[in-house]
Every structure is written in structure tokens, then in C-alpha cells.
């Protein structure tokens, strides 16, 4: 088991470096420099700009800049934000909590909704549950979250006025868990809607497939009840492809969080990312990239471990 995890970690390293190179190059290709975006003081002289450029190393070629950044990263330093002047990790640390809260609650919600619906619709095909879950999954999978976000804000905040349209707490200054949850519901739903759609399809599909398997027939021939067959024989086998789908959801959750946080003024990493990109704040862009990439890679390793638990063939290889 340790060997397995070690191997996965080693494979994750080149992936991680690849991601950072890609993001670095892409953001340096974007038009405009940090100097123009942040320090756009019309009174600044060309000499003053040049001094800043040299101080931040922006006069060097992109390759050199990237290696400088990597060297810095290996010594555990993410650099200083051009925009705020704070240490990057301080800025990120402030924003991590809300993002993790949003993504994990959305993941949990998606699983709680999609798995039972998928299983019921596989066991009762063409029943009312099957139609409900099919409708949900088609609508869900076809609805981009920027659109869902606007629709939800219009419906639930503007028209019905039952949920706030943004932020984590209201402006009264008091903070309570109830208030937080009240603010969380809409962004969480918006972030979940696509995941729920695809996960219902996957669950229904793999449950239907497993029901056709010979070992289900064997279990039936022993005289087991259908419910026992479902929980003891079908689920564990059906979960192997479902877990794959859940693994694929993790990057989408973080990506979706960027858009969702923007719509709902959720003070997380996603909205910080948008701020950083708009001001070409390279250290912050890279800092968040490092964080999200690491989270996704760790997520993948966790998924691999779950595979091991589910499938003895993988475990014994």
C-alpha cells in the first residue's frame, strides 16, 4: 500500500511541474504587464517604471522568470503579491477556507442527490423516479454554471427573496453558522448542478450494467433478497466506474468555483484568481495554481486509494 502511494506521488511530480509551466507561459502571453495594470500612474516616469521592472525581474526572458519562480517555490516561498504587497501565501490562506467550504459542500451535496437517484432509476427503470432523475440529469448537464447562477439569483434572490444574492455573511456585522449556511445554499447548488447531472447518468448506467452480471444471478440463485444483493454485491462493483467520475469532478469543482464565486461575491480563491488575472499579478496567479494543482493531484491519489479498497485486482497488482 505504501509503495502504491509512493509511486503515485512520484508520478504526480512531473504532472505538477507541467501544470506550472503551462500556466506561467499562458499568463505571460496575456497582453499587458503587471506594471501597466497595477502601477498605471500617469505621472510615473519611464525611469521609475524601469526601476520597478528590474525589481520584479520582469526585464528578464519568460524562461528565466519561470526558473526564478520555481527556485523560489522550492525554498517554500510563493513570493509577494504585486497588487497588495502581501506575501502570496498570506493572501491565499485568507481565501482557502471559503473555497474549500464551497467545493466540499457541493461535492457532498452532489453525491447525496445523484447516487440515490441514479440507483433508484436503475432499479425502477421507466418509473416516476427514473423520469425525474433523467430530466434532472439532462437539464443539469446542459446548464453552464454562469447561466444557472444568474437564473438562481433572479429567481431566489430577486423574485422570491428567500436567499441572499452574494457574500458569506450579511452586512450587519454579526456572524453565525445559520447565516453562513443561508448564504452558502445558492452558490453550492449552482456549483453542484452540472456534477449532479453527469453523476446521475454514470450511476444509473453502471448500476444497470452490474445488474446484468452473472454474479448477480449467482447471488439470486443462493436465495438472497434483492436488497441484500444490491448492498452486498451490486454496489461495490458499480462504484468502481462511479468513483472514476467523482475523480473527474474534482478539477471541475475548482474550475467551477472560480465562476461561481465571482457571481456570488464569495470571498474564496476563485474570486482572488479573477482579481489576480485582471491585474496580471503573476505571483498570486501562480500561487493559486500551485494550490489548486496540488489539491487536484491529492484528490486523484485519494481516488486511486479508493479504487484499491473497492477492487482487489488493483490491490494485488
Amino acid at each position: 500500500m505504501l509503495k502504491f502511494v509512493g509511486k503515485r506521488l512520484l508520478i504526480a511530480i512531473p504532472t505538477f511541474i507541467g501544470i506550472t509551466i503551462l500556466v506561467y507561459v499562458l499568463s505571460s502571453l496575456a497582453p499587458g504587464t503587471p506594471l501597466e495594470m497595477i502601477f498605471s500612474d500617469p505621472h510615473a516616469t519611464a525611469e521609475q517604471m524601469e526601476v520597478l521592472r528590474q525589481r520584479y525581474g520582469l526585464d528578464q526572458p519568460v524562461v528565466v522568470q519561470y526558473f526564478n519562480w520555481l527556485k523560489q517555490l522550492l525554498s517554500g516561498n510563493l513570493g509577494i503579491s504585486y497588487r497588495t504587497g502581501n506575501l502570496v501565501w498570506v493572501d491565499i490562506a485568507e481565501r482557502v477556507g471559503p473555497t474549500l467550504l464551497l467545493t466540499f459542500s457541493s461535492l457532498t451535496f452532489s453525491l447525496l442527490v445523484a447516487l440515490p437517484l441514479g440507483i433508484i432509476s436503475a432499479y425502477r427503470p421507466y418509473s416516476i423516479w427514473d423520469y425525474i432523475s433523467s430530466a434532472l440529469s439532462f437539464v443539469g448537464a446542459a446548464m453552464p454554471n454562469f447561466f444557472a447562477g444568474l437564473v438562481f439569483v433572479y429567481l431566489f434572490s430577486v423574485k422570491l427573496n428567500i436567499f441572499p444574492s452574494g457574500g458569506m455573511y450579511d452586512s450587519s456585522g454579526t456572524r453565525s453558522l445559520g447565516m453562513l449556511l443561508h448564504h452558502l445554499i445558492l452558490p453550492m447548488l449552482v456549483l453542484s448542478i452540472q456534477q449532479v447531472g453527469s453523476l446521475i447518468r454514470q450511476t444509473r448506467g453502471s448500476m444497470l450494467e452490474v445488474q446484468q452480471e452473472d454474479y448477480i444471478r449467482t447471488a439470486r440463485s443462493k436465495g438472497l433478497f434483492e436488497s441484500v444483493i444490491l448492498f452486498r454485491h451490486a454496489l461495490q462493483n458499480a462504484f468502481i466506474p462511479i468513483v472514476t467520475r467523482i475523480g473527474l469532478m474534482i478539477p471541475f469543482l475548482f474550475g467551477g468555483a472560480v465562476v461561481t464565486e465571482q457571481i456570488f461575491a464569495w470571498p474564496g480563491l476563485g474570486s482572488l484568481m479573477v482579481l489576480a488575472i485582471n491585474s496580471r499579478d503573476y505571483p498570486v496567479i501562480m500561487g493559486i495554481t500551485v494550490f489548486i494543482a496540488a489539491a487536484v493531484l491529492v484528490g486523484n491519489i485519494v481516488i486511486d486509494l479508493i479504487y484499491c479498497l473497492l477492487d482487489p485486482k488493483i490491490r494485488y497488482e
Binding site: D214, Q236, L310, D311
Partner: peptide
């Protein structure tokens, strides 16, 4: 059953 590979549950 005929095919013992598929007729036994692979994960139990």
C-alpha cells in the same frame, strides 16, 4: 453456472 470467472463476484 457455466462460467465460474464471471459467476463469482470479483470483489468478494
Amino acid at each position: 453456472f457455466q462460467d465460474s470467472m464471471t459467476s463469482l463476484n470479483p470483489v468478494k
